[in-house]
Write a protein that binds this DNA or RNA. Structure first.
Length: 937
RNA sequence: AGGCGCGUAGCUCAGUUGGUUAGAGCGCUUCCUUGACACGGAAGAGGUCGUUGGUUCGAAUCCAAUCGUGCCUACCA
């Protein structure tokens, strides 16, 4: 069956087909292994769950490309590879989205009521929630779709409830009134990490608070405070000054009358107050500021909440009640001014916190919330990394991790939302105590009353996603029958994620994983130690994908690159390769489509190499020669008697495979990708294919030569496809199937063996890669440099491209015997003849002076061609060369004359430099002679 | 305010423990539509490695200072 491939590679024509094929065939499903399997053989990776409302962006694509490369690589290396996909229910984002939808229909969340609204969210999720995973399917991510999770799934919800109840039993969950970041628009508490600070030009209002005299009446004196949020004064319960502030010593023990509210408040002394800032007197509003709250605790001050859920002044605000916080601010400032209590307004630049989701200004607010007492969990999480049970790449992120973990605050886990895991706590109307339970209780655990109602708050989304590494493998329901997954797949091998997620997934998964993973005994029944309780053994952190100008992508700037669009234009493989080749650990990726264009060209190059190969396979078939496909699938080998190019390309393939395997083991996707690129294009196509063309003359040559050449050609190509496959799964899948002409030994290239160099050892009739690599490559390099010198020289002389010309290569004694040794071989001279289009003669002597020549280390070539020599240009070139050589030689001689260098530098370095100096001297002499000869004319 | 990075060719980036003449892709110049490929081939040009000082026989690499630049954390009213 002849191969029919179009001249240009068109990714769109094949990618959909294979993407569907991989999913349909369930190719990457990793069934639960039989008990007793070695967990060390597993490579397990959990997709950091994208937001269910999300669309795929470049960051995801980078993240997934890296995971897919590793997973495909480990799978092909023989590991039990498992990549588990899923999505996160994303409490606030999803609720917001559906709420907007409901409002656009003229209804509202409140009108629908909790139950109906939650049903609406589920409905939305069923219809649109799979978008990002569908995109993943199209991009060929080799995940196990049969294990797809959603954080609100029943089995994962069981884990959430278990974790909550357990932490509660352990005394690590408490409920209380504290200052939290409150979003008045989302009407929920949000985490510190969901608050983004923006610099904002505001004001510092200075307000005069009347001092109350001994008699209980205003003394006529004032204490001036400074504030950026004057409206919070309605809730002031003190004013604080520094105890050593001499300006205010006489006010110690006095009271003030809070303007507009007429409340008597004390002056308190606290060293926290900065004497330099503002007026040195700070109003204290414990219900609306975390620092003030702490002051209030220290000084036993009451907290007066003056704001409601929506950011409006509440009934405690007297006549300002009902006003929006900014309207209230304006009116309060005006009232103060009218009463001459405003001492001044100064411009003040400060940071204002905004809700990460909706950009509304966050209101620090006292409210009753549920918290996790985090220190015990953090301690374990710190220990796990300190002891090396979890390794970070790049290492510097461990520092960031420690920094954050060591300064951690208790975790506010309650959210005033409807979409999420509802907190399993019931309040009793009778005894007012709380019942926390695994199963919904009918009565209060304390007094037996039936008048109990479930807590309305839900849990922070991270509470559930942080549990994923344990929960996706069955925790907490680990029994003798159900534990096979956990035994085989926990701890997972690796988490791949962006640095911006360090404190979300990474930190939380480590804390919760170490805490609950340890509950599950090992397969042999022994207790699980911390090193095996960790959720993953390694963390690889990648950087940000920026635009071509290194700008951060953002919707407002309009510079967002949609990966799907780029994929449509250039093909998935090209985009993947772009990301991989730039994914150097710790460096942001400036995504430039010019580069993707280059890798599309690379794909096209391989495609055309395949066309060439298939063309020859077909030609061979016509004369009855067929390729022995039974030798494919392993690492190609050749005998010592094989022609140079065959020995060389096989040696290069082995070297490349070694480098790629090593690079991937160190997360050097860039090194790995570049090594393959260099091999495929620079070695295989540029040199090997050009040479092998000479061998594939089926009509005129004896059969054995072309047949052997064809076998090596196909063998190396097939192995190289496997090497490239994790990076370019689509192209390689297509061509690999074509190599086997529809009768492949596996369903997919992804299930074949990854090229390894170790398989090359042990067979003495074959050249050993390690043993012969150097000599083969050296020989080839010499041939290449001769060919390049000839080509270059042709250009200098202006020889027409197609013209075949006589040439002489001079290898004098002083040049050493290396080149001469190789050029004595007729086969090698023939290679030079063919690739440089010359008729080459070897002369073991010095090149004649005064002849236009090309001088190289080890040899000189002269092409016999009548050419007009541009004397001026030639002189300029020689002069430039001489200067370069002189400089190099002087530097080398200076160092060689340095006794310290000779005494201390290692011998190979000294030897190398000596050799280099000699070579440079030779080149310099010849260049000088040539210049003299030129001038003599 | 603290912490962490980065500064190498026109652009985007490699350069692992200091060691021979600092690499790649894209872009650029010249020539070539030769039977795999013009998304191609061939040959080239292009860098005092931000600056200054130090350690060393030897520094892009280590140290210090300095300039520039980016990010993270905190959030003094």
């Amino acid at each position: 069956m002849p191969h029919e491939l179009p001249k240009t590679y068109d990714p769109t024509a094949i990618e959909d087909h294979w993407a569907e094929f991989w999913v349909r065939e369930n190719l990457f499903a990793q069934p639960t292994p039989e008990p007793g399997n070695d967990a060390d053989q597993s490579f397990v990776i959990l997709l950091p769950p994208p937001n269910v409302t999300g669309r795929l962006h470049m960051g995801h694509m980078l993240n997934q490309t890296e995971m897919d490369i590793l997973t495909r690589w480990r799978r092909m290396c023989g590991d039990r590879a498992l990549w588990v996909p899923g999505t996160d229910h994303a409490g606030i984002a999803t609720q917001m989205m559906v709420e907007r939808q409901v409002v656009s229909e003229g209804s509202s969340r409140q009108k629908l009521g909790r139950e109906k609204f939650v049903e609406r969210v589920w409905e939305w999720k069923r219809h649109y929630g799979g978008a990002i995973l569908d995109q993943m399917k199209r991009l060929g991510a080799s995940v196990d779709w049969s294990r797809e999770y959603f954080t609100m799934d029943e089995r994962l919800s069981v884990a959430v409830r278990e974790a909550f109840v357990k932490l509660h039993e352990q005394g690590l969950i408490y409920r209380g009134a504290y200052i939290v970041n409150w979003c008045p628009r989302c009407q929920t508490a949000i985490s510190d990490l969901e608050v983004v600070y923006d610099e904002h030009k505001g004001h510092l209002w200075e307000i005069r608070y009347p001092v109350i005299g001994e008699d209980g009446k205003d003394s006529g004196e004032f204490l001036t405070v400074a504030t950026t949020r004057p409206e919070t004064m309605l809730g002031d319960t003190a004013v604080a000054i520094h105890p050593d502030d001499e300006r205010y010593t006489h006010l110690h023990g006095k009271k003030l009358r809070l303007p507009l509210v007429d409340r008597e408040i004390p002056i308190i002394l606290d060293e926290w107050v900065s004497r330099e800032f503002g007026t040195g007197a700070v109003k204290v509003t414990p219900a609306h500021d975390p620092n003030d709250f702490a002051l209030g605790e220290r000084h036993h001050l009451p907290s007066i909440n003056v704001m409601d859920d929506t950011g409006h002044v509440n009934e405690n605000g007297g006549k300002y009640a009902g006003l929006d916080r900014y309207v209230a601010r304006k009116e309060i400032v005006q009232s103060l001014e009218e009463r001459q209590l405003l001492a001044g307004i100064k411009d003040h630049v400060h940071n204002v916190g905004h809700c990460d989701r909706c950009k509304t200004v966050v209101e620090p607010r006292l409210s009753t919330q549920w918290f996790v007492k985090i220190q015990p969990l953090a301690d374990k999480a710190i220990e796990a990394v300190e002891k090396g049970h979890i390794k970070f790449t790049p290492e510097m992120y461990a520092k960031t991790y420690f920094e954050w973990m060591r300064n951690i605050h208790d975790w506010c886990i309650s959210r005033q939302l409807w979409w999420g895991h509802r907190i399993p706590a019931w309040h009793c109307a009778n005894c007012h105590k709380v019942t926390v339970a695994r199963e919904d209780p009918a009565t209060c655990a304390h007094c037996g009353s039936e008048k109990i109602t479930q807590e309305t708050d839900v849990l922070d989304t991270w509470f559930s996603s942080g549990l994923l590494p344990v929960s996706v493998f069955g925790w907490p329901k680990i029994s003798q029958e159900t534990r096979a997954d956990f035994d085989a797949f926990y701890p997972t091998s690796l988490l791949v994620t962006g640095f911006d997620i360090l404190f979300f997934w990474v930190a939380r998964m480590i804390m919760l994983g170490c805490w609950f993973g340890g509950d599950v005994p090992m397969a042999d029944g022994s207790p699980r130690e911390l090193k095996d309780a960790v959720p993953f053994r390694e963390v690889y952190i990648h950087a940000l994908v920026r635009d071509a100008n290194r700008e951060k992508m953002s919707k407002t700037k309009g510079n967002v690159i949609d990966p799907i669009e780029i994929v449509k234009q250039y093909g998935t493989d090209a985009v993947r390769f772009t990301l991989a080749s730039m994914a150097s650990p710790g460096t942001d990726i400036a995504f430039n489509v010019a580069r993707t264009e280059g890798y599309r060209a690379f794909a096209n190059k391989i495609w055309n190499a395949a066309r060439f190969i298939f063309m020859n396979v077909d030609k061979a078939a016509e004369v009855g020669i067929s390729v022995d496909r039974s030798v494919l699938g392993a690492m190609p080998t050749v005998g010592e008697d094989a022609p140079l190019e065959a020995r060389w390309i096989v040696a290069e393939l082995h070297a490349t495979a070694a480098r790629v395997n090593e690079s991937l083991a160190n997360y050097r996707y860039d090194d790995a990708a570049n090594a393959i690129y260099q091999f495929f294009w620079g070695s295989f196509c540029d040199w090997y294919l050009e040479i092998v063309k000479l061998r594939l003359n089926f009509e005129t040559q004896p059969v054995r030569g072309p047949e052997a050449a064809l076998t090596t050609l196909v063998g190396v190509f097939e192995a190289a496809l496997r090497l490239l496959s994790p990076f370019m799964p689509f192209l390689t899948e297509e061509l690999w199937h074509a190599v086997y002409e529809g009768k492949p030994p596996e369903r997919s290239i992804a299930l074949t063996q990854y090229p390894q160099t170790s398989s090359y050892e042990g067979d003495s009739t074959r050249i050993s890669f390690r043993h012969n690599y150097d000599s083969t490559v050296l020989e080839m390099r010499v041939i290449q440099s001769v060919i390049t010198a000839l080509r270059s020289h042709r250009k200098d002389l202006g020889v027409p491209e197609k013209e075949r010309v006589p040439a002489v290569i001079f290898c004098a004694e002083e040049d050493g015997s290396l080149t001469a040794g190789y050029m004595v071989e007729e086969a090698n001279r023939q290679l030079c003849d063919a690739l440089a289009r010359v008729d080459l003669t070897l002369k073991m002597e010095r090149a004649p002076v005064g002849v236009k020549a090309r001088v190289e280390v080890g040899f000189t070539v002269v092409i016999q061609y009548e050419a007009k020599i541009d004397v001026a240009a030639e002189r300029e070139r020689l002069t430039r060369d001489i200067a370069k050589y002189e400089k190099g030689l002087a530097a080398a001689e200076r160092q060689l004359g340095n006794e310290g260098f000779l005494a201390k530098a290692p011998a190979p370095v000294v030897e190398g430099l000596k050799k280099q100096a000699a070579e440079t001297k030779m080149l310099l002499d010849k260049a000088r002679a040539a210049l003299d000869a030129l001038s003599g004319k």
